[in-house]
Computed example of a mutant assay.
Amino acid sequence: MGILTGGGDVPGLNACIKTVVWRAEEMGARVLGIRRGWHGLLHFNPEDDAPQPLHVVELQKTAIRAVDRSGGTFLHTSRTNPALVVPAQFPDFVSEDGYKIKKDQKRDYTGHILNVLEKLGIDLLLPIGGDDTLSYAAHLHQKGVPVISIPKTMDNDVFGTDICIGFSTAVTRSVDFITALRSNVGSHERIGVVELFGRHSGETSLMAAHLAGVDRAVISEVPFDMERLARLLLKDKKSNPSNYSILSISEGAHMRGGEKVQYGSPDAYGHLKLGGIGFVVSEALKKITGERTIYQQVAYLMRSGAPDALDRMVAISFANLAMELLGKNQSGRMVALRHGNYTHVPATTAVEGKKTVDVDELYDKETYRPKVKSMLGKPMFLY
Results as ranks from 00 to 15, higher is better:
168 S>I: 07
27 M>Y: 10
161 T>Q: 10
113 I>T: 11
279 F>P: 03
222 V>L: 10
13 L>C: 01
54 L>D: 03
94 V>L: 14
283 E>L: 12
305 G>M: 01
48 D>H: 01
148 I>F: 06
206 L>C: 14
69 R>Q: 15
220 S>F: 09
154 M>I: 11
33 G>E: 00
318 F>T: 01
312 R>T: 06
116 V>R: 00
212 A>I: 08
290 G>D: 08
82 P>V: 09
236 D>A: 05
62 T>N: 09
133 T>E: 05
140 L>W: 15
64 I>V: 06
151 P>H: 08
253 A>C: 13
144 G>I: 12
56 V>T: 00
200 H>A: 11
335 V>M: 01
42 L>G: 02
378 K>D: 08
306 A>L: 09
224 F>G: 00
18 K>H: 11
88 A>S: 13
51 P>D: 01
85 V>R: 02
172 T>F: 10
161 T>N: 08
66 A>E: 08
263 Y>M: 15
304 S>W: 02
220 S>E: 11
201 S>W: 02
243 N>G: 06
239 S>C: 10
197 F>M: 15
34 I>E: 00
328 K>F: 14
211 L>E: 10
70 S>L: 14
235 K>R: 12
17 I>K: 00
66 A>N: 12
290 G>S: 07
32 L>G: 00
293 T>R: 00
271 H>M: 08
119 K>N: 11
281 V>E: 01
252 G>E: 02
357 V>E: 00
240 N>M: 09
350 A>R: 04
174 S>K: 15
91 P>W: 06
107 R>W: 06
217 A>I: 12
204 T>V: 15
261 V>P: 00
39 H>P: 03
314 V>Y: 05
74 F>N: 02
187 S>N: 08
377 G>Y: 09
137 A>E: 12
225 D>K: 05
22 W>V: 07
261 V>S: 03
374 S>M: 11
225 D>Q: 06
57 V>M: 09
102 K>G: 11
71 G>K: 06
236 D>K: 04
265 S>L: 15
254 H>V: 02
177 F>Y: 13
243 N>D: 11
161 T>P: 05
322 A>D: 11
67 V>F: 05
27 M>S: 11
92 D>C: 07
93 F>C: 13
250 S>E: 07
234 L>V: 05
120 L>M: 01
376 L>Y: 08
37 G>P: 04
128 I>Y: 01
51 P>N: 08
381 F>I: 12
43 H>S: 03
36 R>L: 03
355 K>L: 11
173 R>P: 09
7 G>V: 03
149 S>T: 14
211 L>V: 14
363 Y>V: 15
235 K>F: 11
266 P>S: 05
353 G>M: 13
167 F>D: 12
246 I>W: 04
52 Q>E: 00
27 M>E: 13
296 Q>Y: 14
381 F>Y: 13
210 H>G: 09
30 R>P: 10
134 L>T: 10
360 D>W: 06
69 R>V: 12
365 K>L: 07
174 S>G: 13
320 N>L: 14
326 L>P: 03
257 G>M: 06
256 R>S: 04
284 A>Y: 02
67 V>N: 02
104 D>Q: 10
249 I>Q: 01
139 H>C: 14
16 C>W: 01
84 L>I: 10
233 L>A: 03
1 M>H: 11
166 G>P: 10
338 R>S: 09
127 P>S: 02
363 Y>T: 14
150 I>L: 07
361 E>G: 06
138 A>Q: 07
313 M>T: 09
150 I>T: 04
71 G>M: 09
15 A>S: 14
54 L>P: 00
223 P>Q: 05
